[in-house]
Amino acid sequence: MNYQFDIVSKIKSLEEELKTSEKKVAQVIMSDLEWAGNASIHEIASAAGVSEASVTRFSRSVGCKNVPDLKKSLVSSFAIGQRFLEGHMDPITEESGAIGQVVKGIIEALNTVNTQTSQKKIEQVAQLIHSVDKVVVFGSGGGATVIADDAVNRMFRFGVNISSYNDFLMQRMVASSLDEKSLVLVISTTGQIAEINDCAQIAKQYGAQVVAITRGDSPLAQLANIHLQVHIAEEEGIYKATASRYALLAVVDAIALELAILRKDSAKESLRRIKYNLDTVRGGDRRFPVGD
């Protein structure tokens, strides 16, 4: 995995330790990362009112080999994190409030995934899950981990032998144990995580079917036997949680619904048992959810 040196954090952490001339360089650079990443050493020195040697010393003080290395790190930091540096805000209007902004994003994400994801492929995935002996779900990170666990919650009640894993080493071991009677459901917002993609490839090597819920222009989509398209553009705001996880949940729920229809007789009895044994301890309305 390629490690990206976070020059911005390094400069901020060393700010009090720098010499006076180096602090001036830091102030100039942090005021405009984009400019500094493209400026010559002479331009940076002139803007800071210091010598070119001071710019070179500053580069080494913050962990760079030289000025070109510093500029490369600055360009990378600006390109990746511009909106976090400039403070893009999530607009909360007086009319909608925070709840209005969040719901608006969710609705837009759901409308998008409704047009992206193929109903035919949903049915194919449900049929595959119905036919195999074992299903494992791989998801890593803040959103996919939760959705992988929810896929288990959705499908165990229909008699599916299903489990989820979010640790890369566990995923690798589990993938190595699978065969042609198994299916791997991989959930990834980006489809770019090398470790989880490697695990999917391992499972496929041993004959398991690989189903990916991810964006179509990703390596994960390319290696999957069936790919379900979910590609939600992230908003500029930096504080609001991404609505893409709701789109991923919708696809998982759609698969579960199709699966329930395939197994409607056994699913009905399983759901009855669950509802009966839940209501004996919680009581209440007969319309309470079945274990949600």
Rank of each mutant, 00 (worst) to 15 (best):
P289Q: 07
G37D: 06
F84R: 14
G49T: 07
V210R: 10
D150F: 06
Q201S: 12
N197S: 08
I80M: 12
F84P: 00
E235N: 11
A47H: 11
S218E: 07
S182R: 04
Q229H: 15
E236N: 10
G81E: 06
V50A: 06
K72Q: 14
A36Y: 04
R57K: 13
S244I: 07
D150M: 10
Y246E: 03
R172F: 02
A250V: 00
I7L: 12
L249K: 05
Q171E: 14
F84Y: 14
D32F: 02
H42R: 15
V230C: 05
M155F: 04
Y246P: 01
Q27S: 13
D133Q: 15
L85P: 02
K10I: 05
I162G: 08
G207L: 06
A98I: 13
E123C: 02
V28E: 09
G49E: 09
S51Y: 03
G49L: 04
A267E: 11
V281H: 08
E195F: 00
I99K: 14
S61R: 15
V252I: 14
S244E: 04
L248P: 01
V62W: 08
A250P: 01
R287F: 10
V211G: 04
V210A: 07
R282T: 11
L262N: 10
A208W: 05
M170H: 13
G142R: 14
V25M: 08
K12S: 11
V152E: 11
I80K: 15
E235Y: 01
A254D: 08
W35S: 04
G237T: 07
V136P: 07
G207E: 10
S13G: 02
Q171Y: 01
A247C: 06
I122H: 07
F58P: 05
T115A: 09
R263A: 05
N225S: 12
A243T: 06
D69Y: 01
L259A: 07
P68H: 11
R287G: 01
A48R: 08
S164Y: 06
R60Q: 15
S270C: 05
Q82N: 03
L128Y: 05
V186N: 12
G291I: 07
V184R: 08
I232Q: 09
N66Q: 03
H130C: 11
Y239I: 04
P68Y: 10
G291M: 11
K240W: 00
V62R: 10
Q222C: 00
I129Q: 07
D6N: 15
E22Q: 15
S9I: 00
E269Y: 10
Q119M: 07
V137C: 12
